[in-house]
Write a protein that binds this DNA or RNA. Sequence first.
DNA 1: CAGTGAGCGAGCTTCCGCTTGACTT
Length: 603
Amino acid sequence: MAKTLVVVESPAKAKTIEKYLGPDFAVRASFGHIRDLPKSDLGVDVDEGFTVTYEVPDDSKKHVAELKKAHKVSEELVLATDYDREGEAIAFHVATLLGVDPERAKRVTFTEITRDAILEAFAHPREIDLRLFDAQEARRVLDRLVGYKISPILWRRVRPGLSAGRVQSVAVRLIVEREREIRAFVPVEYWSVDVRLAPDGDEHAFLARLTQIPEGRLAASPDKKGIVLATEAETGTHAERLRRASYRVTKVERKERKRSPAPPFTTSTLQQEAARKLGFGARKTMSIAQRLYEGVDLPGEGTVGLITYMRTDSVNLAESALREIAGFIRTEYPSGYSLAEPRRYRTRARNAQEAHEAIRPTSVLRHPGRVGGALDRDQLRLYTLIWQRTVASQMAEARFNQVGVDIEASVDGLTYGLRATGQTLLFDGFIRVYREGRDEGPDEDAEARLPELEAEQLLRMLDVLPEQHFTQPPPRYTEASLVKTLEERGIGRPSTYASIISTIQDRGYVRLQDKRFFPEDVAEVVTDKLVEHFPDIVNVNFTAEMEEDLDEIAEGEMGRVQVLREFYDPFHEALERAEEKFERYVEELDEECPRCIEEGRTP
DNA sequence: CAGTGAGCGAGCTTCCGCTTGACTT
């Protein structure tokens, strides 16, 4: 009975690790955080070194009881929670609640759930990083202070039940500001001219775009450098001349263009791509991914987890996975499709903690076609997406033949310039398996064929096609583009993207209509007030700056109390000013009071 | 006397991030 109790965060992970560690270990899950600030009280003494009161939330009580029970019958405790700031804090709290001194507790971390990685990690236990824990606690306290100090002002001055927070208030602000850009947007008219040309007969006709008029170079659109054809009349003058002009090829440029596959999925990119390709909302994507992670019953194999952990900001793949994928590609595809060396990606998201791998199939040998029978339609569609993206990320680049042709048109002693571009696929590479979807804008990989042309060749004009355009306002955010923007700014975490989207709707700040976010009036009022009274906190850079401070705590360059004090003193002053100056907002109701009408009053 | 309405006080709402079920929209 000389068992060691190992605590991880997720029960699915517990099962896998227990299998790797063997019978001397009992692995149990904490189910995330098990201790938190009280819900109905600030729980922070701002005058006494930001002392924190913790309690075990009701939902965690049974998990704590389970851990205590398992701890009683084991000799040793190993904390194997996630390798990030929150995981370090969970480790600290588990140790504390089990009566183990956090300074002496054994801590083990890994970023891949593979047998080798686990055994290696357990061979080199360390201690809990108390500075990292301090950083987490500072983060928690700061979020509590922001949320629980500002929200009540909104209840009193705007509407009961409203909320403000480091993350949600910035999300709402982005949506409000985008709406204002759209409102203020004035479309600008501009014209393009395409000329249909052919080397000889009509069958090889192609389009060339007017790029140069006698007065100078044209702009591709009004926001770019160059001359803009702003009116139909002006465009018509050039079109009329182009109809009479003679055309000659001046230059043919051929080059090869390569395209690399997108990196494996993170939570954010999975949510974006599932929205683009499958039309799933963030919440739906996450719950389906959770099912795939927890495992499905496969005939002959029992319950198997099909994908790695779905809440991650890392694009890394485990070495063992890279080997398996490379082997799979070598056997399933012709030789040109595999890579000599694995392709490695770098995380571009700010604030990434990379405690896990990228989201990938636990084995690419479980082809979607093989596991399809055990999955429902949506599960299979999401699994297929993950499988394809992962395999494609380790396949050869696609190669395109790109041709650019410059054409000169002469008329009345004037010279015009046109350009035609063509692109053909030389080698499909990773595109054979998977291509990333697009939000807006043209398809860069679309094929456009040009006939064989050479310099000095004369061309026949078949048609001149002027076309009217208007500049477009920026698009309203979708769930996917909002998540993308938040991630790029380092705001929010993989475990919270879906709930941020819910919160800002539940509070009545924004609504989704045709999959686009529209702000309600209350969002505009609250955003303006927050920008007026708490400009630092609703700044999109606030989180990034906070992260720098937290890093300094973790590095031992600053203390938790010092960071919180430097935040809180000016914040406290802003709160007092707001308490005084934040004028009450009286909502105008759209609908009339039913009783007033009944009783013959005007409200 | 019964019903109505004004006035008052008490109690509630809220953050972010880590995990799953338990649900009843």
